[in-house]
């Protein structure tokens, strides 16, 4: 366990020194909070741009829950893109530079290395998402209207689960592939497929973890969870574990690649 903590702390230190711990949470806050702010000041903005007061006043003001929903879908596009690009080299980068050899030559199991990396990604991503989401809620509460705290809490947990799954996919592709851009691309492609396919092939894709975002949205707008939500929740947990395990297998198979040859 102490060895695992050493690996975890090293990853966290690396993320701090590369400013990830600063800029990713700040960007998540700004991304989220922009929604209630622009919505609230939209009439003034339109007016300032010379659009008639009547037109501006006639613009429908969205419900507070819709603002939160919009934020989640923004995290699902721009947020995931930022996370995938930040972590695309988490395994392959070290392998390619040759620095991974220095770790593998010590008595470290590939599984503890993979879980330590995943845990460090998860710590950062969940912190960024959590702070960003709560800040958005705070601004929405002041500017638009209130959303009950228990709905915020539950939707936050549902979306966090989807994020954990998404990170395990990035980790897995980074272990399996040598190209960082390729890993980010395939991870995003897989995540997009899991998000979009349930609406096209509803019957076969009920288990898709991509439905968690939709479930979080349903929860926010209707106030209660859909009855079939347990399936994607269970699938997300299971697949996350499976992907982390696959990642450790890939990094084991490629451990002898010393980067230079």
């Amino acid at each position: 366990m102490s060895q695992w903590m050493v690996l975890y702390r090293k990853e966290m230190l690396g993320m701090t020194r590369s400013y990830k711990w600063l800029w990713i949470p700040v960007v998540f806050i700004l991304l989220g909070v922009m929604n209630p702010v622009t919505t609230a000041y939209m009439p003034q903005l339109l007016e300032a741009n010379g659009i008639a007061k009547e037109v501006a006043a006639a613009m429908p003001v969205p419900a507070a829950a819709d603002i939160m929903l919009k934020t989640l879908s923004q995290y699902n596009t721009l947020g995931l893109l930022i996370l995938a690009l930040s972590f695309m080299g988490i395994v392959s980068g070290e392998r390619q530079s040759g620095a991974a050899v220095m770790i593998h030559v010590k008595p470290v199991s590939h599984l503890s290395l993979a879980t330590a990396k995943w845990a460090s990604m998860a710590s950062l991503a969940l912190t960024a998402f959590g702070i960003g989401y709560l800040a958005t809620w705070y601004y929405t509460d002041i500017l638009i209207g209130s959303v009950p705290p228990h709905l915020i809490g539950q939707s936050l947990l549902l979306y966090a689960l989807w994020l954990l799954f998404a990170l395990s996919a990035v980790l897995m592709f980074s272990s399996a592939m040598d190209s960082q851009a390729g890993a980010a691309f395939l991870a995003l492609l897989a995540l997009a497929a899991l998000s979009l396919l349930p609406s096209l092939l509803g019957r076969f894709m009920k288990w898709s973890p991509g439905r968690l975002t939709g479930e979080a949205g349903t929860l926010l707008s209707t106030g209660s969870m859909a009855s079939g939500a347990w399936l994607p929740i269970a699938a997300a947990l299971l697949l996350t574990a499976a992907l982390i395990f696959c990642s450790s297998l890939f990094s084991k198979r490629k451990a002898g690649n010393t980067g230079t040859k």
Binding site: L22, W23, V26, V27, I29, L30, V33, V37, Y139, I142, L143
Partner: peptide, 12 residues
């Protein structure tokens, strides 16, 4: 409300 956001952006 807007000032904290501007400060965050400045820090970045």
């Amino acid at each position: 409300l807007v000032l904290p956001l501007a400060i965050l952006q400045l820090i970045l």
